[in-house]
């Protein structure tokens, strides 16, 4: 059974459709990645799930129960890590943890004990007595994450938890999240980093302009392209149109076309060398050809017609 189930969630801000009827599910022990560029509607979705925003339509179910029927009970089941550092910088790391633990309903003794455990797990014991304002970006991110875990929530909502930190800090956080998942926590993880979604998430939902365009495992999403190879052709495509090439659309799917580049995926399970031969025989003078495994960016490219990194 899903720890979190979202059905037909929608939210408008005036004339802007921030989230456009999306549905998905997060199961126990799973990391579900919500991948999309900035402004795609990821944070709005998390805000509605955690009760910070009232949806215009749709329902959220936490632990099988409708969120609206008992919001406090639903909130007890989840820990929310906001994208911004929601910390009191004048307080120490330990004081922050203990304070949020008390608000989550722990006794003073329990909050203290959990804070000690988390400080150790997050490798922050040595700096526990220092004010958060003296921490590095990575350390602040770790405390920000820890503050949502005091009450051991079975469901964790992470809104871009690694934004703006160095690779080492990111690796530490991703490793910690991996351990949480191993412990059975269901995690909804929003990100615009392809690598994180590819390496961390079991299932991925691709979101853009508030709409969930596709979801599935990485393999399932790659298969949407029609094969496990993508070809990047460099040539002068200014005055050419793939539609005019005889039989091209039966064998390849165009993912992206610009004046100097054409990205295509091979349809069917043909041999890469045969595909390459076909491409080199196209009626254009090819300057370069690159063969690669399809990435999430290629999937995004195919779904939206633009690069996720743009």
């Amino acid at each position: 059974m899903g720890l979190l189930r979202v059905e037909g969630l929608a939210k408008n801000f005036g004339a802007i459709r921030a989230v456009d009827i999306i549905s998905f599910e997060v199961r126990a022990g799973e990391i579900y990645g919500l991948l999309g560029p900035n402004g795609a509607g990821k944070t709005t979705t998390i805000s509605m799930i955690s009760g910070l925003l009232k949806p215009d339509a749709g329902e959220v179910f936490v632990g099988g129960a409708r969120f609206g029927s008992d919001p406090q009970q639903a909130k007890r089941h989840m820990g929310v890590v906001p994208q911004d550092l929601a910390l009191y910088e004048e307080l120490t790391g330990r004081e922050n943890l203990e304070f949020w633990g008390r608000l989550a309903g722990l006794s003073a003794v329990e909050a203290k004990r959990r804070a000690t455990e988390l400080l150790e797990a997050l490798a922050l014991t040595e700096r526990a007595r220092d004010a958060v304002k003296t921490y590095s970006g990575g350390m602040k991110r770790r405390i920000n994450l820890g503050c949502a875990l005091l009450h051991r929530p079975p469901l964790l909502l992470l809104d871009e938890p690694t934004v703006g930190i160095d690779p080492q800090g990111r690796a530490n956080i991703l490793e910690f999240i991996g351990r949480l998942r191993t412990g059975g926590t269901g995690i909804l993880y929003t990100t615009h980093y392809l690598e994180e979604a590819e390496s961390l998430c079991h299932r991925i939902g691709i979101i853009d302009h508030g709409r969930l365009l596709a979801e599935g495992t990485l393999k399932e999403l790659q298969e949407r392209l029609g094969g496990d190879r993508v070809f990047v052709l460099e040539a002068d495509f200014k005055d050419t149109s793939p539609e005019a090439w005889d039989g091209f659309h039966e064998r390849f799917r165009v993912l992206q076309k610009s004046e100097c580049q054409l990205v295509v995926a091979a349809l069917g399970s043909r041999d890469p060398s045969a595909c390459l031969k076909d491409l080199l025989n196209l009626p254009v003078r090819i300057a370069n050809v690159m063969v690669k495994r399809p990435s999430l960016n290629d999937v995004f490219l195919q779904l939206t017609g633009r690069d996720l990194r743009e």
Binding site: S50, L52, Q72, K75, M78, A86, L87, W100, A104
Partner: peptide, 14 residues
Amino acid sequence: RLRTFDRYQSLRQD
């Protein structure tokens, strides 16, 4: 501004 209010709301309904 610091979103600590949001965090409070994610924990408490009242």
